[in-house]
């Protein structure tokens, strides 16, 4: 549906936010009313477009999906919560890593911070609740919250349990595309050593 809106943008369309089970359309009611002069409220006019987008979403859904191979270092200081998770889940750390890196994830939504990608679905064996209190998290950290996994784009307080870190930036305001992941993309994590991680940084 989001793709349909990108192809059929109207004047006054300000933002399209796809999330897990919703699509939010933000629009400028004044511009729409002035330019398209709908008989109904602008709200109903946009709602009708959403209905059309829904009906046509199948036509576009088989569009090529981008797949990202993302290196993750699951070791040492880059995985501060892996030990406690392993103890709690009664699973060896290697097994958590293996399970986390063997699933092909989908970007369900980007939100919270610029470039914070919510990925799923995490294998039930390693699903893990959030921390009771948020703790400082470094940019690039890969965390788990329930059945979601995600990557912190910036240093930030966060409640997710951190099991690794990626060497590249999720968000770079100076880049041509500040965020290179998009909702709907696929992500495959590949474990790398501390040495490889630091070389790629």
């Amino acid at each position: 549906m989001a793709a349909w809106f990108s192809d059929h943008a109207f004047e006054g369309l300000k933002n399209i936010i796809p999330a897990y089970s919703s699509l939010t359309v933000i629009y400028d009611p004044f511009l729409v009313k002035t330019l398209y002069q709908p008989d109904s409220t602008v709200y109903d006019w946009v709602k009708q477009l959403l209905q059309t987008a829904f009906e046509h979403s199948d036509d576009i859904s088989n569009r090529a999906v981008k797949r990202h191979q993302v290196p993750v270092c699951y070791e040492g200081i880059y995985a501060p919560d892996l030990g406690s998770m392993a103890a709690s889940l009664k699973l060896p750390e290697e097994e958590i890593i293996r399970i986390h890196a063997s699933t092909l994830y989908r970007v369900f939504m980007i939100g919270f911070l610029p470039g914070f990608a919510y990925l799923g679905t995490v294998d039930a064996q390693i699903a893990f609740p959030r921390k009771p209190q948020p703790a400082p998290v470094m940019a690039g950290s890969v965390g788990i919250a329930g059945k979601q996994t995600g990557i912190y784009p910036l240093n930030s307080p966060g409640g997710w349990n951190i099991i690794g870190r990626i060497p590249m930036k999720m968000f770079d305001p100076n880049a041509k595309e500040p965020v290179w992941m998009n909702p709907g993309d696929e992500v495959q994590f590949c474990p790398v050593s501390v040495r490889e991680f630091e070389m790629q940084q």
Binding site: K14, N15, G111
Partner: peptide, 13 residues
């Protein structure tokens, strides 16, 4: 008046 067209990337208006 704000930054639009980026909210799907987590960048607010």
């Amino acid at each position: 008046t704000g930054r639009f067209g980026q909210a799907h990337l987590g960048i607010n208006a």
